[in-house]
Design a protein around this nucleic acid. Sequence first.
DNA 1: TTAGTAACTTACTTTATGTAAGTAATTATA
DNA 2: TATAATTACTTACATAAAGTAAGTTACTAA
Lengths: 102, 102
Amino acid sequence: MDKSICPRFEKAMSILSQRWTGLIIYQLLGGPQRFCSLESSIGVSGRVLSERLKDLENEGIVKREVFPETPVRIEYSLTDKGVALEPLMRDIEKWSQSWLQA
Amino acid sequence: MDKSICPRFEKAMSILSQRWTGLIIYQLLGGPQRFCSLESSIGVSGRVLSERLKDLENEGIVKREVFPETPVRIEYSLTDKGVALEPLMRDIEKWSQSWLQA
DNA sequence: TTAGTAACTTACTTTATGTAAGTAATTATA
DNA sequence: TATAATTACTTACATAAAGTAAGTTACTAA
């Protein structure tokens, strides 16, 4: 038995099983967020957050928008592809409520 | 804004975002499996598979059973807690079908 | 002028993962 | 009978990923 797993499923897993991506997406379900608020709410280092947001942008899951105000404001939000992950996030929420103790 | 995320959700994410755990659980949804068949179907190294299976056993998600035949047979399967992750896996499947190209 | 915030990047350290070989028990093959 | 193979691992070592802390650029507030 060798490599019977669907490559699309594997790809999805490789994205979602990256450390922090799940929490980033979950946070963005609550609406657009700035770099520093993601950093502090999730507890990820700036170095890795920067990397992850670029990856997620390349995957078309996260969208980065620059608002040229003074001072400039940069917001990260979910694309449709990203929002489509909501049911999955809700399942994790449900599972954690049912099976993990607080 | 600091650490507003539910600790149970975070815990769930920390389990599921470990490399390979998702694929291991997904494979075990198809029924009990032996070490070497997981190793080859997933493509994970024995070193890490061994580590992951122990972690998942400690979390109560996977159960290890020894059948004292000759030669001895060892099977890994999902507990109820593990099977409860099925809807989540199906959502990942659905998402990957809808949003990732083959 | 000094300090502070936002959004990063860079250099360096620690942790995680991969690779390859080794082990112990058993079975199949020449 | 000796050799090779399989299963379920572990160990030692190398590489890749993540964390830590400091630095950068642009602007703003005291």
